[in-house]
Design a protein around this nucleic acid. Structure first.
Lengths: 227, 227, 227, 227
DNA sequence: CATGAATGAGAATTCATTCAT
DNA sequence: TATGAATGAATTCTCATTCAT
């Protein structure tokens, strides 16, 4: 386990190795339970070197959060087709999101599960990235409404709510799709009754659900307790 | 601070005091960062007594999870009207859920944020409760489909997916509605631009969104990438 | 070495044992080089107990400084005869000072050598005690001048300077008299050419020198480079 | 910060730069708290170079002590007028001493405060220099006694004691005159009520006090408790 | 002459847990 | 029923020191 013994590596490379190991460890153990010893060993270096380059556990965690945040945003951004219709943009964005989170489950776990539950210094960093994505989705939904020619039907407030719900649902699905048991194996086994869904399938499920609801709402239909 | 000094309290009562303190502490600090010292002080007893009754930190956390899980399930169960139509049952269940999580934010935080991120022994316990709720919702959606006379349109698999998404969305909203700032105060202040939403409002928002989408899906409409 | 194994000792007693060990260790090694491990072992307890009672190395050092300061001031205060003539008071105070520093060489080393060289938080505490003693000596010299009927001859500024010099000289002599080699043995051995001087002798030496100079100055005699 | 980047500097020069940085750092932080990192950075070189030239922290500190000791002795020696009367020699020596310590406060702090409190290897080195100075002063006082024609009055032992006291007093005054606050600024500010005294003033203060006392003692006058 | 990369050893501090009463 | 006294085992972080280039 750990990287193959490779001495005298340039700093930039070593730092990435350390961040890689840190992502793994933080994802599996959580911020507090992760030990710098384990991270150093995972990176194939001694602890002092980790401190020399990353200064402290707190800063290391911050660096991890920032790197994974940036990677996620980049993946989603790269996936969308700029000029396309709103629904296509949303669709491609979702595919990109699910593909990225499936590819880097540890990174996603750190962002979604660990960073958000560690309070002030860290939760804020993830919140910022999340806000950026919500904003993007809000714009898309607004555009879709306009394209559908139903400007007045959806209040801004409602659009924002929908965006928030959509993002939340996507996060939930991503977590579920990447679920893994404690021993690190996938929760979807050959012996299990179902296979791990592909990013495309997951995106379709969500898109389907959301777009249908959206259509009705734009048509002015609401649910009421009385009904 | 803590309970007023009261000696010779019967065991059952003391245990509840301890669990109360533990919920508070685990919610605010997380499992690892919470110290048995703080919990004992919060309960107004000495540490050895906590160990005498609850045996270990791990067992204490388990007990907390089980107590809060049971309370949540009980609250939701008590809220639904047994004989009513599926949509009304869902609606009242959601109200019950949001009301309970709003009333016991620490309990919800322990279940949703802390227990799930601590791996094997604990995550499993919450997962069991969650599965129970998902099953309940699945039945409701199935019933709704039958009531709407569209048996064949929704595959079982799809129903399950919808139930999962619905539960996930509800969790997301509950977390958001109970958000608190680092200093422990509510994120929705008198001076803020918006008030903390009531359980009823939150339930309505979700119900609206979900029911609309559900209706369309049951009518056989789907979104397809082809546009 | 260390206290005999004695379990279950009341807190107040244990704290004194810890402070005793700390004085020894700080005196021999200096603040930085002293390890909490060594102090704990010296006190015959485990490290966590030291932290439980004294909180941190810094606070432990503070407590040591305050305890030793108080003991020194108490010893000097107890030694002077309140109603006596100024010179007798000075004499008895000096005897008390040298006796105390001879009896507790480690305490004196901590105050005089270690605390003063550790900067802000600690140096200030010793400085306060020292200032108290300088003030006391200043008053005595002033009284002596008045008794000798030479009010105008000695300016206040000069009196203060003399007090300062006198205290400095006493400190210097105390350090010298208690000098010990690195292996902890007295610097004045049987085989050496001289015995360690008694407190009385040291006091006499200083008193003699100071009083003589003081007399001349009060008589208005000064040294001038031209001479 | 540190010296301007200048490559390929001859060894002798580099060593002095390192010693300069070391004096600064040891004076401000103490032996233990001073880090080789800080010293290297202060000297504007890499750490390995420091080790290449000075071998170890211990040896570096030794070199510092020896350099500063030698400088101090040289300054005092250069100041005295060889053929002059004893009192003039003492006077000029004191002036030289105070001038030197004022000019190199860090060097003096290392000798007087740090080296003496670090035990065996270092304390001995300063002690040796100090002994040399005490011997010099002893000779001067003896000469003065002879000049004053009072050979028998002062026992050798007493002369030695006086020399010791005189040196101690001088050290004390030097420390006091060079006192600096924690933030590194002089304790005597423009805004303060008094200016930092000049070397000449400090020397006069001490000379005055000592010479007066000395005179009386040589005249055979003693203080006795019986008073 | 000079340095970027790397580490073994040890420091302070915390915490879950137990013992004796 | 209840607790003051006590500790083994980590954990984060620092530092003097060396190697390969």
């Amino acid at each position: 386990m750990g990287a193959a013994k490779s001495k005298r590596v340039p700093r930039a490379v070593r730092e990435q190795q350390m961040l890689d190991a840190a992502v793994r460890t933080f994802a599996r153990r959580g911020y507090r339970a992760a030990s710098m010893d384990e991270i150093a060993e995972g990176a194939g270096v001694s602890k002092p070197l980790v401190y020399l380059y990353l200064n402290s556990k707190e800063e290391l965690f911050s660096r991890v959060i920032r790197r994974e945040s940036a990677a996620l945003v980049a993946a989603v951004t790269a996936a969308v087709e700029p000029g396309a219709a709103a629904d296509r943009q949303l669709w491609s964005g979702l595919k990109g999101f699910f593909a990225h989170t499936a590819e880097r489950p540890d990174g996603w776990a750190v962002l979604h599960q660990q960073a958000r539950t560690q309070g002030e210094p860290f939760a804020v960093e993830v919140a910022a990235m999340r806000a950026e994505i919500v904003r993007f989705v809000t714009v898309l939904i607004g555009a879709a409404a306009k394209e559908a020619g139903c400007d007045g039907e959806l209040a801004d407030r409602e659009v924002a709510g929908l965006a928030h719900a959509l993002v939340g649902a996507a996060e939930s699905l991503a977590e579920w799709a990447n679920a893994r048991t404690a021993d690190g194996t996938s929760a979807f086994g050959v012996s299990g009754e179902r296979e791990r869904p592909t990013a495309k399938e997951t995106a379709a499920t969500l898109m389907n659900f959301v777009w249908a609801g959206l259509g009705r709402l734009m048509a002015g239909e609401r649910w009421a307790p009385g009904g």
